[in-house]
């Protein structure tokens, strides 16, 4: 029984939140890794793109709510999501036309592209602020729980509570659908394959008559979509705050690099490695320890790291990977 209680506690406080967070990171890292493999630079504007996309979704959600449109037990934001994707992807395409295209033409060094993406980051940041401000916003509506603590107790009779929030389920389900669609696209469609070809060997792709402008355009559209979805899911699960999204850049980059930057499977694996390490290391294990070791009450919280240092976890894993395996767990593109 005690063992079961420990298991429930771990599921409730570690496995469920880390899975949801990992799915959000994975979607973010997929966006970063896609830009990296096609356009060959680390996009520092990605966090702010996520913030922008989510801002648009929130505004549209409010619009729907004002019109009395709802999505039943699901959050209205899911209805607004497609519109947010369209707006964000359009902005990405516009940014490419106005900003990035020129640097591709002059074959700028990757590090210059990173600098350019910092400029884009400023603009995105400003747009998000104009759009929706800097405050924390909760925009989740609909049913809050799939299983709440009372239901759990009635169902199992266990004293240790377990809750499953609907946003967590929505996050995971959406992420699975999106990843499935993305892999289907990259693996089965002509356009998707041409993107992989372009990522593999740009010169040969050109020789084969693959249109680089089309590849790049599709990449930005997908990146906009991934950023908006990742941002919206994160915002539904936790809350929206523009600055938090900028800070997400670190765990997202860490996920992409840990998995092997440029490798989509790696991005997903990396997302979960980072999320489980972060949640696991900052969780106070006291309860679990008390269940598992009878007759012993630890005096501390048995928390390895304060949650204030959660970004240190991403950083440390990033550093370890850079030291021991710079190409990442799954072989990424050249270091």
């Amino acid at each position: 029984m005690e063992f079961l209680n420990a298991l429930v506690a771990i599921t409730n406080y570690v496995i469920i939140p880390a899975t949801a967070y990992g799915a959000q990171l994975a979607l973010g890292a997929l966006g970063v890794t896609l830009v990296y493999s096609i356009l060959r630079f680390s996009n520092f504007a990605h966090g702010d793109t996520m913030a922008f996309g989510t801002g648009v979704v929130i505004l549209i959600t409010w619009g729907f709510q004002a019109m009395g449109i709802s999505f039943g037990p699901l959050p209205t934001a899911l209805l607004a999501l497609p519109f947010g994707i369209v707006v964000t992807s359009a902005l990405m395409l516009g940014t490419d036309k106005v900003v990035y295209q020129y640097y591709r033409k002059v074959k700028a060094a990757p590090v210059v592209m990173v600098m350019v993406s910092v400029g884009v980051m400023f603009i995105m940041n400003a747009l998000t602020r104009f759009l929706i401000g800097v405050d924390q916003i909760n925009f989740a509506d609909g049913a809050r729980f799939v299983i709440n603590a009372r239901q759990w107790r009635e169902m199992t009779g266990m004293s240790e509570p377990l809750t499953l929030r609907s946003t967590q389920v929505i996050t995971v389900v959406t992420a699975i659908l999106v990843v499935w669609a993305l892999f289907w696209f990259l693996g089965r469609t002509r356009t998707g394959k041409s993107m992989r070809a372009f990522s593999d060997n740009e010169d040969l792709a050109l020789l084969s008559g693959i249109d680089p402008n089309r590849v790049v355009a599709v990449t930005w559209i997908i990146t906009g979509a991934l950023a908006t979805i990742a941002g919206t899911l994160y915002g539904l699960d936790k809350s929206f705050k523009a600055f938090t999204y900028f800070q997400l850049l670190l765990p997202i980059f860490a996920s992409a690099i840990v998995g092997g930057i440029g490798n989509p499977v790696g991005a997903i694996a990396g997302g979960f490695v980072i999320s489980f390490s972060e949640v696991g290391l900052t969780y106070a294990w006291k309860k679990v320890v008390t269940y598992l070791i009878p007759n012993w009450e630890p005096d501390g919280l048995v928390q390895l790291l304060s949650t204030d240092y959660k970004y240190a976890v991403s950083f440390t894993i990033l550093i370890l990977v850079l030291i021991f395996k710079p190409t990442g767990l799954f072989k990424g593109k050249i270091v």
Partner: peptide, 28 residues
């Protein structure tokens, strides 16, 4: 020592991280 000699933008990402952590330390 760790991030130089690898791809040029890895330094950017590593420094982004160390900055967050230094400030977290000073705050906490």
């Amino acid at each position: 020592k760790i991030a130089l000699g690898l791809r040029s933008d890895y330094l950017a990402i590593a420094t982004l991280g160390i900055a967050e952590i230094v400030v977290a330390v000073l705050k906490n």
